[in-house]
Design a protein around this nucleic acid. Structure first.
Lengths: 211, 211, 211, 211
DNA sequence: GATGAATGAGAGTTCATTCAT
DNA sequence: CATGAATGAACTCTCATTCAT
């Protein structure tokens, strides 16, 4: 069954896929309650109402389960945001849509995001190197943002007073910060915060601002 | 010896304080290398060149050591930033100084910050609740910022178009994001990023901006 | 289906017998590659290209499969050697034929022998007592040899200077040792070794040797 | 503490060495009773009257414990046999002394030998290759024997009708077979068997025998 | 003050076996 | 007949903690 490699091409039956989702969902719940370190397979299995061995049967191991949890959410986020961003025209609209849809997705998946955060920060490979929280991973996420900003500058939609790289980093940090806060505080108003961020970055990228 | 409570009032000898710092420093190194989960007391002791028992002698336990690590850095940060912020007059200058000195401190303590981040995110009490990563903790840190922004608005230094709370949150997220990046990427230019943030938040808080 | 007892008398269909041989053959391969401890049913099933359940269907359990592996080889060896030994007349010829045909069989079934050795040494019953590697098993195998030697002495073909029991034991040890070596070293020349043993035991059992 | 590598040069305290011997002794007992597969660390610890963790503390792991068990016995055997073989002059005496002292050692360490046999045959490295039961290991043990036989032939003490390699192999097999039997049958008379082997190999290596 | 041997709970993992389909 | 999902026990190993020296 194992799925250590995400590109194994192994076709999975519907029922098996359901089990995997069920287990991942249980992991999400447990992690968001007791943290990464406290998320023992025994507890996850108990939460899912299955025996410990089932997890080993459907995943190559604990690390694989955690990795799949991350990957599944990344894919979901892409599926949610991609079309919406693709549907608008201007670079500015795309930027603001990126921000807004990202926060919408976060708002709709708070516990999941909390768990993801825990996993990304804690999961390491055998040599002890982070598996997701790497410069490479960061680069991969932020590069499209930078390119969008550059395109906007070239098209004359954005001002040229700002450097795209740190601007993109600020946007990512704002989103990640909102995710952490959304995960931590149930009463946190993501929509309002989204509006704040959109306005702030809208201004920050305007022409003529001595930015 | 134990120091489970940080306010135990127990006066410590100089030599004892040195030992504690040495152990915390070793913990910082180990955590930044192998992560929170990989930071066993045995490894920390080995790194410090002492025996495991010494740690138990100077700290109430592993959790206490980790908590002291966090507290020590918070105190250091306060000692570094406090005077500098107090030295400037206007609300705007205080705000920008807060940002700048915060990033200076981060730049000067990258490994330490990396370890702190790990601990804050992972350390939990017996019931599984986060010890530092709480709404209360967040509130405590962010409240002064909010007050600074409100004062600036009342004094007419800042525009009133923005809501102080989300603005303060954005600033915290920007700082925290920079801290994570500084910890992760040795070549990250904190000073340049600091300049970017100062400009961005300077603009965002101006009068007349429809923020 | 079960066959816990080898004398169950259950008549098996041809196709069923074929399945059993196929499974045993797969077990032999796996054991000779990864050893007894590494020979999980899952691996054996995978090697045989069938599902785990099939093994359970055809054998009462793992231990039964292993036992049948041993028994099958014992039977095969008997079928191979019996007629050849029965075809010669003198006690000396029978002795030497026993040696020679035994080594021929070993030579022709090296992997099988390797697996058998692993099973005989490791298979135990529920109480932890060896199932094959027992004094009784040894006695059963060695008794015919002793009787052959005694008959040879009575007939005057062999000298009487040697004690039949230790002589028979030496012969068994020589054969078993050759089996182990044949299983371990592909380039081991069994035929040459067989010639060496035949000469050595021929001399050792001669008349007039102060043995 | 670990000792995965036998040449670690780590000086061990007397008390620590005693613990290691105690644990190895317990392992020997357990293995000889329930076999290699049945020898769980929990059972070994229970037998030694200590907790499971102590074994992990004194050995790098189960495999290390097993390896040390083998090595310790090899060393003991060498210490027992070496001087006795060195004390005799002729090649023939050395050969017979090798045989006799080997069997004496076996006789005096029956359970230990039984355990050793189990370990040698079952212990494998991470890749699944045998750790001791290899052609190389066999060669290392048998080479001195072969050299002794060749020297005897060159000195004219032995006949030249036999090939030293298979003769040496037969001797090893005879010894190993005796070891297995001694381990299995408490009433097995090793001394008598030793006399038998000495006589047999004495004759087999004589001059003038058409061997 | 400091050591390191010992403990014991708990972790992830493996695997023979069972059983609904 | 065959499958493969599920079980649950048993295993090795890790580690914070304790304590005699």
């Amino acid at each position: 069954m194992r799925s250590e490699s995400s590109t194994e091409g192994r076709r999975r039956s519907f029922i098996e896929e359901a089990r995997r989702r069920q287990i991942i969902a249980a992991a999400v719940e447990v992690i968001s309650e007791v943290g990464y370190a406290g998320a023992a397979l025994a507890r996850i299995a108990e939460r899912a109402g299955i025996s410990k061995g089932v997890i080993s049967y459907h995943f190559a191991g604990k690390d694989d389960l955690m990795a799949q949890l991350v990957i599944q959410l990344y894919v979901s986020a892409g599926e949610y945001m991609g079309p919406k961003i693709g549907a608008v025209e201007t670079a500015r609209d795309q930027l603001l849509t990126y921000l807004a849809t990202n926060l919408e997705f976060i708002d709709a998946n708070r516990t999941y995001i909390a768990a993801l955060h825990q996993v990304v920060l804690n999961l390491r490979d055998a040599e002890g190197n982070p598996r997701f929280a790497t410069s490479d991973g960061e680069h991969e996420i932020i590069q499209p943002l930078i390119e969008g900003l550059i395109r906007g500058q070239q098209l004359g939609e954005f001002g040229t007073e700002f450097d795209p790289a740190p601007m993109a980093q600020s946007m990512r940090d704002a989103i990640d910060g909102a995710a952490v806060r959304a995960a931590r505080e149930p009463e946190f108003d993501v929509a309002a915060y989204s509006a704040h961020l959109c306005r702030m970055f809208d201004i920050a990228t305007r022409k003529g601002e001595r930015q």
